[in-house]
C-alpha cells in the first residue's frame, strides 16, 4: 500500500523541480509552423489593387463550399483588381470551413493566403460569415507566402464530352427516330 504511494509521489515531486512546460497561453504563444493554416486573408498587389479576380477556383476547390463569390466587371478607369473582373462579394463561412487550405492551393493569383490567426471565437452565428472587408489586407501589407504549387503534380485528365459531341449524339438519335433520309442540314 505505502510502497506504490511513495513511488507515485516520487514522480510527482521529481516534476516539481523540472522546468515547467505549460504554455502560459494568453501571455505566451507557441510559435506555429510556417505553413500553419488558420484564418484566410485576401492579399493585394504592390500597387494596392486587389489580387483576387473572382475566378471562383477557390470556391470550387473547397470541399465544404464555404466560399461564395460574385464577380463583377471592373470599371476601366478605376479598376479594383488587375484584369477585367473583381470579386464584388467574397464570403467565407467559418461555420463550414475546415482550414484544409485547398482554396489557397487553387488560387492562381496568389490572392488567398492563410495566416496563423487562430483566435476566432465569436458570439453569434452571423459573425461566422466573414466578408471581403474583413478578410482584405490593408494596402502595403507585405505578402504572405501561399505555397502555390507546393503539392502540384502533372494533371492527367480524361477527354471530356464537348458540346459538339452532345449535339452529335442528339442528332443521331433524331435521325434514327425519323427514319432514313439524308441529313437535313
Amino acid at each position: 500500500m505505502i510502497g506504490p504511494l511513495i513511488k507515485g509521489l516520487t514522480i510527482t515531486f521529481k516534476y516539481i523541480f523540472k522546468k515547467k512546460f505549460t504554455v502560459q497561453y494568453p501571455e505566451e504563444r507557441r510559435e506555429l509552423p510556417p505553413r500553419a493554416k488558420w484564418l484566410h486573408i485576401l492579399q493585394r498587389h504592390e500597387d494596392g489593387k486587389e489580387r483576387c479576380v473572382a475566378c471562383m477556383l477557390c470556391a470550387s476547390a473547397c470541399p465544404t463550399e464555404a466560399i461564395y463569390i460574385v464577380g463583377e466587371e471592373n470599371d476601366l478607369e478605376n479598376p479594383i483588381s488587375h484584369g477585367e473582373r473583381y470579386a464584388k462579394v467574397w464570403d467565407l463561412d467559418l461555420g463550414r470551413c475546415m482550414f484544409c487550405g485547398y482554396c489557397v492551393e487553387a488560387c492562381p493569383e496568389e490572392a488567398l493566403a492563410m495566416t496563423d490567426e487562430y483566435e476566432l471565437a465569436v458570439p453569434t452565428r452571423k459573425d461566422l460569415v466573414l466578408h471581403k472587408e474583413d478578410l482584405l489586407v490593408e494596402p502595403g501589407t507585405p505578402p504572405v507566402k501561399t505555397w502555390l504549387g507546393f503539392y502540384r503534380k502533372e494533371p492527367i485528365g480524361a477527354m471530356p464530352v464537348t458540346r459538339p459531341m452532345e449535339v452529335h449524339v442528339e442528332y443521331e438519335e433524331y435521325l434514327k427516330r425519323r427514319g432514313p433520309r439524308e441529313a437535313h442540314e
Partner: peptide, 28 residues
C-alpha cells in the same frame, strides 16, 4: 441544394436569379 454561407445566415441574395439561357437541341 446549396451549402455554405446561406446556412449560416450569410447573404445569398441571388438565388432568384437566372444566370443564362442556352440552347437545348430538339430537332423537331
Amino acid at each position: 441544394y446549396s451549402r455554405g454561407a446561406v446556412v449560416s445566415g450569410g447573404t445569398r441574395t441571388d438565388n432568384h436569379e437566372i444566370l443564362r439561357v442556352n440552347m437545348r437541341p430538339n430537332y423537331d
